[in-house]
C-alpha cells in the first residue's frame, strides 16, 4: 500500500514537473520579442484564446488579413505547428 502510494506520488510529481517545465513548441519562444504588454503599437497576445491566435495566423498566412509582416512569418508554420504555438501562448497568459 505504502509502496503503491509512493509510486503514484513520484509519478504525479514527474507529471507536474513535466507540465510546469514543458518546453515551448517550435517557434513559440520568439513571439515575445515583439508581442509584450498592451499599450504599444504591436498588439499584446495576452487574453487571446488559442482559437483566436490560430485563426489570426491562418488569415495572415492566406492573405485574408492584411499585414505588414505577420504574413511573412505565418508562412513558416504548418497548421499543427501553428495550433501548438497558439495553445502554448494562450496557456502563458498568467505567466510572468
Amino acid at each position: 500500500m505504502t509502496r503503491v502510494r509512493a509510486t503514484v506520488l513520484a509519478f504525479l510529481f514527474s507529471m507536474s514537473s513535466a507540465c510546469a517545465q514543458s518546453p515551448a513548441p517550435p517557434g513559440a519562444l520568439s513571439c515575445s520579442g515583439c508581442h509584450g504588454a498592451a499599450g504599444v503599437e504591436i498588439p499584446s497576445l495576452s487574453g487571446l484564446s488559442a482559437d483566436e491566435i490560430t485563426e489570426a495566423m491562418g488569415a495572415f498566412k492566406s492573405g485574408a488579413r492584411p499585414a505588414t509582416l505577420m504574413n511573412r512569418l505565418a508562412k513558416g508554420f504548418n497548421e499543427t505547428e501553428t495550433r501548438a504555438i497558439s495553445q502554448w501562448l494562450a496557456s502563458q497568459r498568467s505567466a510572468p
Binding site: 517545465q21 518546453p23 515551448a24 517550435p26 517557434g27 519562444l29 520568439s30 513571439c31 515575445s32 520579442g33 515583439c34 509582416l69 512569418l73 513558416g76 508554420f77 505547428e81
Partner: peptide, 24 residues
C-alpha cells in the same frame, strides 16, 4: 530563449526537440 530551454533540458538529462526561430 531556445538556448535556455535546451540548457535546462540538458541539465535534466533530456534531449531538446528541433526548434524554430524567428527574426525581424
Amino acid at each position: 530563449k531556445v538556448c535556455a530551454s535546451a540548457v535546462a533540458l540538458l541539465l535534466r538529462g533530456e534531449a531538446p526537440a528541433s526548434p524554430k526561430l524567428l527574426n525581424t
